[in-house]
Design a protein around this nucleic acid. Structure first.
Lengths: 200, 200, 200, 200
DNA sequence: AATGAATGAGCCTTCATTCAT
DNA sequence: TATGAATGAAGGCTCATTCAT
């Protein structure tokens, strides 16, 4: 009975109180780590943000790394979901790529900067963490790879570098993006257009 | 020849004693911070790397931030120098851009990963540091801007996004680059080619 | 009786476990700072005196200054309480003054030298601390002022300087006082007598 | 030849250059320690104030304590000199006491607060220092004692407590004195008057 | 008479974590 | 589910001092 009963999906003893404190922690951690980085965010900070004492976090997560991993999973899941939604119903390969780029950029530049979470070296130097992070990230990368594979590119184009260039350009945007000038959607369209013009 | 004459009985193995301890510190710090990040590198680590006691560092630098700033200046100066050398004698705008990209990538992927140093948010969250870092970085950016301004691009192309896409793609390379597969020069050539094909 | 019941299997030697670690810290700090001054007392010293690790102090107090402030409050409260007790039931203004002086001197010279704590410049140079210290001290001063205001003094006497002379003489006593010669009470009586003879 | 030749009073080799750097150091130290206390003043601070490097101070003084001792001697000498000047030509015992008090207070409240220097516990906890400080201070005290001994006091008055009360009141003045209200001379007159009225 | 470079000890503080309750 | 109290290690930094030059 450590985590959840096996009958109901959620502890619902008295009508739905305390709706998943664990999720609250993840959300708070996402926000803080997104803003100040993994090293720049202490367990104290996270605890304070959800109104807990630092020690209490350890009921939910065995360590800071574990918390980070949960958070990373959470974040990557959002990317996947955004991608699912964006692709739905689209057939044309270039349309699909642009939709994907748009979804990625919205996620990356919207509300919080998730870049700090998604970078492979995010959680200190722990190699075990890095491996799991990479694994999750790779699954997402694979979907982009598939999207690129479906493009009708000229024979000489290296699809690997095509993808890496695009993703690099995207993932670097949080460094220079300022609210108010170009929208994420405009940037997405322009990036895809630039690549498309030359590669087709 | 600053200090010791050559006749005196001084340890003169490699041409004068302790010619530039300060530089040693910067070099060691560059290496460590490049690998493990600013937060992940302690003053103790740096001191150990140069064979000093932690407190001794403070003879040379007033604070960790100050050391970082010196290091940043140092790193940016290298980029400028590499750019100078790369551009020398080239006239054609596209040749110049590709040479610049090649120089940038060599610096970024060669010997040490200087990305961690050159990122605007590198030194913790100190805003004063961030400002000085940004200023130095902007001067370099301006040179790339000039290079892009000189390109004969099609009327519709947004030169700003063109530059940001290119720089983003470049600066993200340390995330995925593995020694042994593609060389920095190959990557540089491919990136420029992809952009050129569509933008001309 | 705040925490542990009396039936449970807990170390209950002196009536409950660790009833007030915070108070222990304050007491130890009072002793040490009273003897060696604020700067002369390290957090390590205080921690060692209460059998804690240095870092553990920070569970109870956010900083050395905060600890000092708590300690100061504590000390001033003792002075107030001593004054309350001393004044109780006395009507004659000179009797009241002498009782107050006696109480003050007993506190100041008894057990520990609290002078170092009560001096306005005690806690390093932090102005925020100095302000709070002064505020607490002023409330005590006001009570002495009231005592002096009630005295039937000759018209020409400056009651302000009267009070400052008396308090100065009192607060300087720790500098010269040696156990064994005059008692605090004798000193108190003599000081008041000297002032009274001339001022009435 | 460590200190000075025995013929001339001062090193005057080439007409009086570098006129006693040692004195400069003492003066700067007096100022700083007077303001921020012994612990609150670092050798660095003192060196900076005289435009030297910290290590250079050790040419003049073997240690911080030694410097303090020199400074203390210097300060006490000023008190003695002020006392000499104040007493000159005065015969009446009360006049002499008041003049002495005036001189003391002017020294104490004028230019810099020398209290921090003259307190017996000033230089950290070093007992050797404390002893020498006390010795110098005692010589000064003795002169006050003599002044008090000469007063025509009523038989019952304890001359020891008389002196301690007066000196305590005086030495505490830096704690409450504010420029602009009462002058040192007014305070001196009032203090002596209050004591005289009752003791004669 | 002073500098430049460093030492070694110590300082205040922060951190991830533990564990009895 | 969480709290209260603490641990142990480490972090950035300051300090008095030394010593060859």
């Amino acid at each position: 009975m450590t985590k959840a009963g096996q009958g109901a999906a959620v502890p619902a003893e008295r009508g739905g109180r305390a709706p998943n404190r664990r999720e609250d922690v993840i959300r708070a951690a996402a926000e803080l780590i997104g803003e100040r980085g993994f090293d720049g965010t202490s367990m104290r900070d996270i605890a304070r943000a959800v109104g807990m004492l630092p020690g209490s976090l350890y009921y939910h997560f065995a360590s800071k790394e574990e918390l980070f991993l949960a958070l990373h999973e959470h974040a990557v899941a959002r990317y996947h979901a955004a991608l699912d939604a964006a692709l739905e119903g689209l057939r044309d390969p270039w349309d699909r790529l642009e939709a994907a780029v748009r979804a990625h950029l919205r996620e990356l530049l919207g509300s919080r900067n998730l870049l700090a979470i998604v970078r492979p070296d995010a959680a200190g130097g722990d190699p075990a963490v890095a491996a799991r992070v990479r694994a999750e990230r790779d699954a997402y990368d694979q979907r982009i790879r598939d999207l690129v594979a479906a493009l009708p590119l000229a024979p000489g184009v290296d699809r690997g570098l095509f993808r890496l260039m695009l993703l690099g350009a995207l993932n670097w945007t949080p460094v220079w993006f300022r609210e108010g000038r170009r929208t994420p959607d405009e940037i997405a369209a322009a990036f895809v257009a630039m690549l498309r013009a030359g590669a087709e």
